[in-house]
């Protein structure tokens, strides 16, 4: 396919060849259930590789991967870095928030500069929704969305799905309650898209101030009470509440938020007895989740981190099939 193909659309590569027919991964939106499942299957293999003593593969040998983060992130950036290195790529981390942007360089300027260095894969996080799409149109390499504003965070949804599938089997039979700041959450949007694609029953639970307009038409059941929203849920997914939303603008206070929407033992008791708890991290213990639950036997939070590396390896591998000169 053309190296300049700007769209996240179907390429000329037959699905049977790659299982993932696109040049970029900009979102879960547009992925078919078989494409999602293929990525998850591929990630299973990556889990096995990551648990070996010899973790190195050669799929991306000679390739350059740039992690371009306009927004600080420890977890996601290091996860992409390890994934790239395990596949043999040369990985470079760029934190832009502290340098070029302050000097007045636009997103497009940055993209053009980086493009001139001939990277093969750009992993991009940006605080503005749509910024990663814009950048993908301006560079010649593959682009992975590592989170754009409140829009999408596709690898997070994939790693969440992988974690669920490994513990609960068929995602299509699960009831998943996504709880907390849905309004500002790219994790929520990507998860809603993915879980709906795979046929899960999806609920969101939040105070109305943290729900986007039209949420009831996004394929979810909407609840404002944790007791109702968690009833018989298989998976309880908590979202991080950003500090700047805590005092008065969207919710009155941390203590009130925790009282009504923080996941504690009592609220979790409404879910199925074998329900599992997830959180994309980093957690605010005592704000959206009780430490007792975060660190308890039903928590999958640490395992999500492991699955994060595997899913990112799978995505990088899938995109490698479309890199030029391959």
């Amino acid at each position: 396919m053309s190296a300049n193909d700007p769209q996240n659309g179907p390429s000329l590569t037959p699905p049977s060849m790659a299982g993932y027919p696109y040049r970029h991964l900009l979102g879960i939106e547009g992925l078919s259930p078989p494409e999602i499942t293929a990525l998850l299957d591929r990630a299973e293999e990556a889990v096995a590789v990551s648990r070996q003593v010899e973790k190195k593969k050669a799929v991306l040998r000679g390739r350059t991967q740039i992690n371009l983060f306009f927004e600080a992130s420890t977890r996601t950036q290091s996860s992409f870095e390890i994934a790239g290195k395990r596949l043999g790529a040369d990985v470079m981390n760029m934190s832009v928030s502290s340098s070029s942007v302050k000097k007045g360089e636009t997103l497009i300027d940055t993209a053009a500069t980086l493009n001139a260095m001939n990277p093969d894969i750009l992993v991009v996080r940006h605080h503005a929704a749509g910024a990663v799409h814009l950048l993908a149109q301006k560079v010649g390499c593959s682009v992975i969305n590592a989170g754009d504003g409140a829009h999408e965070h596709p690898t997070q949804a994939l790693l969440d799905a992988l974690t669920m599938r490994r513990h609960k089997g068929d995602i299509g039979r699960l009831t998943v309650a996504i709880c907390g700041d849905i309004l500002h959450s790219r994790v929520a949007r990507s998860n809603i898209l993915l879980l709906n694609a795979l046929g899960a029953r999806v609920r969101v639970v939040a105070p109305s101030t943290l729900l986007p307009t039209g949420i009831s038409q996004m394929g979810v059941e909407v609840h404002t009470s944790m007791a109702d929203g968690l009833k018989d849920a298989d998976i309880v997914m908590m979202l991080r509440l950003q500090r700047e939303r805590m005092a008065g603008s969207f919710i009155p206070s941390v203590r009130e938020y925790f009282r009504y929407w923080g996941l504690d033992r009592e609220k979790l008791s409404h879910a199925r007895p074998d329900a599992l708890v997830m959180h994309p991290g980093p957690m605010n213990r005592g704000v959206e989740i009780d430490p007792e639950i975060a660190d308890g036997p039903q928590s999958l939070i640490r395992e999500q981190v492991e699955m994060g590396v595997a899913v990112r390896m799978a995505v990088l591998e899938a995109l490698a099939a479309h890199l030029p000169n391959n």
Binding site: G248, P252, S253, R255, Y260
Partner: peptide, 15 residues
Amino acid sequence: LTKGLKGEEMSEIGL
């Protein structure tokens, strides 16, 4: 309705 009646931050309506 708002903290200190300042009209800026909502009060703890639940509690």
